[in-house]
């Protein structure tokens, strides 16, 4: 059973204008997938549809054979909270919560009991053990991104969705971050689906879906 299956899904700006033409995508467990395309090609919109944050104008997204369109909004929220982790482009953390509480938030939203020991172990694995009690404002951008990765992993999701995880990084950091993402996802038994315009990371993925730029 595929982890994620999108069949003939499309998103529209309006009645005439497609964000991207209808497409198919199947992601098997462990099949790390890159959605590659220039700005405006609809990468983030496609991630929204795969995460159930929005419903496609046509076609269907199934997560572990469950149609997302068949669930109401609240059930989609729960499914996202339980089974998906997110690494985002800009806003990584809740400013009013410290590092550990930011990580534990994912467990709370997944409906499981907060496990501070696991959160701290993940932080240690990512080289952030001493930052557990710090507030997000006290972290560098790179540290915040690694905390976000810990939050994406802590509740043991089967799917991690990453939006532009490396776009602002130099080559050395880009390689380090994508390796870290893939390593940690593999260690936790999760599959990574990343959307980016950054072709430098193409080689790290077993499946690449290219979106054409808008004419």
């Amino acid at each position: 059973m595929p982890l994620l299956a999108a069949s003939r899904i499309g998103a529209r700006h309006d009645a005439q204008d497609w964000v991207f033409p209808p497409l198919d995508l199947v992601v098997e467990p462990g099949q790390n997938t890159l959605i590659l395309g220039p700005s405006g090609s609809g990468k983030t919109t496609l991630l929204n549809l795969l995460a159930g944050l929005a419903l496609p104008a046509q076609g269907e997204v199934r997560f572990r054979d469950q149609s997302l369109a068949a669930l109401d909004e609240s059930a989609r929220d729960r499914l996202r909270g339980r089974h998906m982790g997110f690494v985002l482009q800009r806003l990584h953390l809740i400013a009013s919560l410290n590092v550990v509480d930011n990580i534990l938030l994912a467990q709370r939203l997944a409906g499981s009991a907060p496990d501070p020991a696991r959160a701290r172990a993940l932080l240690a694995r990512l080289g952030l053990g001493v930052h557990a009690e710090r507030m997000p404002a006290q972290l560098s951008q790179g540290e915040a991104q690694r905390v976000a990765l810990a939050r994406a992993l802590v509740h043991r999701p089967s799917l991690i969705l990453a939006d532009e995880p490396t776009s602002a990084l130099d080559d050395a950091n880009c390689a380090a971050v994508i390796s870290l993402l893939l390593e940690q996802a593999a260690a936790e038994g999760a599959t990574l689906v990343a959307a980016t315009h950054d072709a430098r990371i193409k080689a790290h993925f077993s499946q690449v879906l290219s979106l054409p730029g808008r004419a």
Partner: peptide, 10 residues
């Protein structure tokens, strides 16, 4: 917005 994305119900 982030909370909603992470799965927080309304």
């Amino acid at each position: 917005q982030l909370l909603r994305v992470l799965g927080a119900p309304r």
